[in-house]
Structures are given as C-alpha cells and as structure tokens.
C-alpha cells in the first residue's frame, strides 16, 4: 500500500478532472488514442510502468478539467476491462467509476482473421461482446472470437 501510494505521487495531483487508473502498462497509449487526448489542450500527465500490487505494473493518466461521458469510456473497456475512472473535484476523489463493457463494439477494433471480409472491404467492423468478464469479442461477419489479449485497434 505504502509503495503504491508513493508511485501515485510520482504523477502530479490535479485539482479537478479525471484520473484513469489501472491501465495495463502496454495499453497506456491505446487509451490516449481512443480518448483523443492528443487534441486536448488542458494539462495531461501520463505515467507508465508504475508498480501496482494488483497488476504488477500499471499506467495512470491524469487529465485536468475534463470529464468523460459513459459512451467515451465504454470504448476503453475493449482494451482494458479493469480500468477505473476517478472523478476528481477539489483534489478529492468525488467518484470512482468502473467501466461497463458495452454489448457491441463498432469500428474500434480490427478482426484478427485475415480472411474476414472486414479486412478487405471499406466497411465498419462490428463485434458482439460474448464474454463480459473476460472481454471476448465475436466478429459479426466471420464469427471468429477474439480473446481480450489479441484485440488490436484499427
């Protein structure tokens, strides 16, 4: 606990905004891209490879003066189902939100089957979330299942 606290402090505290916690270290920049953080003008601090007793290693992103809708967040669950959003008001955690897995994922993820029509035709991919706890997606077109660890963003 002590150690985790310390690593939190490595990333500057924010007065108001959102802290996205428990991001797998290798997915930090996927989260940046999915939320379009590169085009945000408020201060953002990104921490990666921080030690976490729950995950071993994790990433944190703190975004000042910015809150995210449920819809924006649900995209994140595809790459990292255990992400937690902390809503910060006046330096305090006002609310902790786990991200709900959507029933369907449209246009974010690439099908891993090279013979799938979606990889050859200019069209939107669609996946049904068949296993919400494990984050398994099933392609609407070719029917192949994609385990969470094989999910690749478009």
């Amino acid at each position: 606990m002590e150690k985790a606290k310390k690593s939190e402090q490595l990333v500057a505290a924010i007065e108001n905004g959102t802290v996205i916690d428990h991001i797998p270290s290798d997915k930090v920049f996927d989260v940046v891209n999915l939320l379009g953080l590169t085009s945000i003008t408020t201060p953002i601090t990104i921490g990666a490879n921080l030690s976490s007793h729950k995950m071993g290693s994790k990433g944190i992103i703190k975004i000042a003066d910015r809150y995210f809708s449920e819809d924006e967040c649900s995209k994140l669950s595809v790459i990292a189902p255990n992400i937690v959003l902390n809503i910060i008001r006046n330096y305090e955690v006002a609310e902790k939100k786990a991200i709900p897995m959507p029933d369907e994922v449209r246009g974010i993820v690439k099908c891993c089957n090279p013979m799938c029509i979606t990889n050859h035709e200019p069209m939107q991919t669609v996946f049904r979330v068949v296993d919400k706890t494990n984050g398994t997606l099933r392609c609407r077109y070719c029917g192949k299942d994609i385990p969470k660890d094989d999910v690749k963003l478009l």
């Binding site: 089957n113 029509i117 050859h120 609407r140 077109y141 070719c142």
Partner: peptide, 10 residues
C-alpha cells in the same frame, strides 16, 4: 459464393 468469410452477411 465468396472466398472471404462474412462476405454474404455483409
């Protein structure tokens, strides 16, 4: 008939 999977669905 198509060689790609999901072609008919699409």
């Amino acid at each position: 008939r198509h060689y790609l999977e999901g072609a008919a669905k699409y």
